Computed example of a mutant assay.
Amino acid sequence: MSVDQHADHDVIKHRHRSEGPQKHIIVFIFSIILTVIAFATVAAGGVNATFTVILLLIMAILQVFMQLGYWMHLKDKGHLMPILFMIFGFFVAGTAVIMALYWVWW
């Protein structure tokens, strides 16, 4: 192996593989499908209200995780601190909601 080939091999070996737009397009299409399903479920009108609320909540949670993972890139390495801060924020917000409900009802 010549010096030039060895240098090219090292460059190729150390490059980061980019994700490309394929996964973003798939996630975008999946988000559109979830949104259409949500609108169709509510527009149908004859669907049980409890089922509709549960379905909407599940689809909303799926969309949040997809958007955090792919659009906000939290699935990549080096994003531990933002994830921890968001978890702490959800904990504080959840605690505030629970305490407000407790304060109002008891």
Results as ranks from 00 to 15, higher is better:
residue 1 M to E: 09
residue 1 M to V: 05
residue 2 S to C: 05
residue 3 V to K: 15
residue 4 D to I: 15
residue 4 D to L: 15
residue 5 Q to E: 15
residue 7 A to G: 02
residue 8 D to F: 15
residue 9 H to A: 15
residue 9 H to K: 09
residue 11 V to K: 14
residue 11 V to T: 15
residue 12 I to H: 15
residue 13 K to G: 05
residue 15 R to Y: 09
residue 18 S to E: 14
residue 19 E to W: 08
residue 19 E to T: 10
residue 19 E to G: 15
residue 22 Q to D: 14
residue 23 K to E: 12
residue 23 K to R: 15
residue 24 H to G: 12
residue 25 I to Y: 08
residue 26 I to K: 14
residue 26 I to W: 11
residue 27 V to S: 12
residue 28 F to A: 15
residue 29 I to C: 05
residue 29 I to F: 08
residue 33 I to H: 03
residue 33 I to R: 02
residue 33 I to C: 04
residue 34 L to R: 01
residue 34 L to T: 03
residue 35 T to I: 07
residue 35 T to E: 02
residue 39 F to C: 14
residue 40 A to W: 11
residue 40 A to K: 13
residue 40 A to G: 11
residue 42 V to L: 12
residue 42 V to E: 11
residue 43 A to C: 05
residue 46 G to P: 05
residue 49 A to E: 13
residue 50 T to D: 12
residue 50 T to P: 04
residue 51 F to E: 10
residue 52 T to F: 00
residue 52 T to K: 04
residue 53 V to C: 03
residue 56 L to V: 01
residue 57 L to I: 07
residue 58 I to H: 07
residue 58 I to M: 05
residue 59 M to S: 08
residue 60 A to V: 03
residue 61 I to Y: 05
residue 65 F to R: 02
residue 65 F to D: 01
residue 66 M to N: 12
residue 67 Q to I: 02
residue 67 Q to F: 08
residue 68 L to K: 01
residue 68 L to N: 02
residue 69 G to E: 00
residue 70 Y to L: 04
residue 72 M to G: 02
residue 72 M to L: 10
residue 73 H to A: 04
residue 73 H to Y: 07
residue 73 H to G: 06
residue 73 H to Q: 09
residue 74 L to A: 05
residue 74 L to H: 03
residue 76 D to P: 01
residue 76 D to T: 10
residue 77 K to P: 12
residue 77 K to I: 07
residue 77 K to A: 13
residue 77 K to C: 04
residue 78 G to Y: 00
residue 78 G to L: 00
residue 79 H to R: 06
residue 79 H to Q: 07
residue 80 L to G: 04
residue 83 I to V: 12
residue 84 L to A: 13
residue 84 L to N: 07
residue 84 L to Q: 11
residue 85 F to N: 10
residue 86 M to G: 08
residue 88 F to H: 01
residue 89 G to C: 00
residue 90 F to E: 00
residue 90 F to D: 00
residue 91 F to Y: 10
residue 91 F to L: 09
residue 92 V to E: 06
residue 93 A to T: 02
residue 93 A to G: 03
residue 93 A to E: 01
residue 93 A to R: 00
residue 94 G to E: 01
residue 95 T to C: 08
residue 97 V to G: 01
residue 98 I to R: 04
residue 99 M to I: 06
residue 99 M to N: 08
residue 100 A to G: 06
residue 100 A to K: 03
residue 101 L to R: 07
residue 101 L to A: 09
residue 102 Y to E: 09
residue 103 W to V: 07
residue 104 V to N: 06
residue 104 V to R: 09
residue 104 V to F: 05
residue 105 W to Q: 07
